[in-house]
């Protein structure tokens, strides 16, 4: 028994480190948890991409479940996410607000013209200052907002068909049922 002790200790360490490696393949250690979940969307007033004199505000979106997708033409992961937005996200039946982050409006327009526009509307945050209120630190990021204007879910990184089917779709279905 005593002879086996070091081996047992070694195996325990292997198990511990193996668990650590497995955990890191399942979770992104760089992901910053959002403290905004369960809190109201920060008050925003952002100009539309195609009509900068008009602004979209939080009040206007009250009363409906919607998604805010932070994207930029310079963001490579947004390009990976884009086909998913064009296809899977369209089946969700809620408005998809494009939040153009730290982008030149001309670049954003060209990007949407080239790849297609999955958004119900696109608003711009040219210098990304508003985005700090949302706790945005990169793109893409996606927020799910309920009819009362409360953030219910945040996805950091690209949306995938799996996330849409297993997370967003059930959550949206549930939120729509809550709606009066």
């Amino acid at each position: 028994m005593k002879r086996a002790l070091p081996l047992i200790g070694f195996l325990l360490l292997v198990a511990l480190f193996g668990f650590g490696i497995w955990w890191n393949t399942q979770h992104d250690p760089r992901e910053v948890p959002s403290p905004l979940i369960g809190k109201p969307v920060p008050a925003y007033s952002l100009p539309f991409l195609d009509n900068p004199s008009q602004h979209l505000t939080r009040q206007e979106m009250l009363g409906q479940v919607y998604l805010i997708n932070v994207f930029a033409s310079w963001c490579i992961a947004c390009g990976e996410e884009h086909p998913v937005l064009m296809q899977d996200a369209q089946q969700l039946g809620v408005p998809l607000v494009g939040y153009n982050y730290k982008d030149d409006p001309a670049d954003a327009k060209a990007w949407l013209a080239r790849h297609g526009n999955p958004y119900s509307m696109v608003v711009t945050d040219r210098n990304g200052v508003e985005a700090i209120n949302f706790g945005v630190y990169g793109a893409p990021e996606t927020f799910l907002v309920d009819a009362k204007g409360i953030i219910r879910y945040k996805r950091i990184g690209p949306l995938t068909p799996k996330v849409i089917a297993h997370v967003l779709e059930p959550k949206i279905r549930e939120l729509k049922r809550e709606e009066p």
């Binding site: 910053v32 948890p33 959002s34 403290p35 905004l36 700090i132 209120n133 949302f134 706790g135 630190y137």
Partner: peptide
């Protein structure tokens, strides 16, 4: 900052 980006 914590209100926006958590204790991180």
């Amino acid at each position: 900052l914590v209100a926006r980006y958590s204790d991180y």
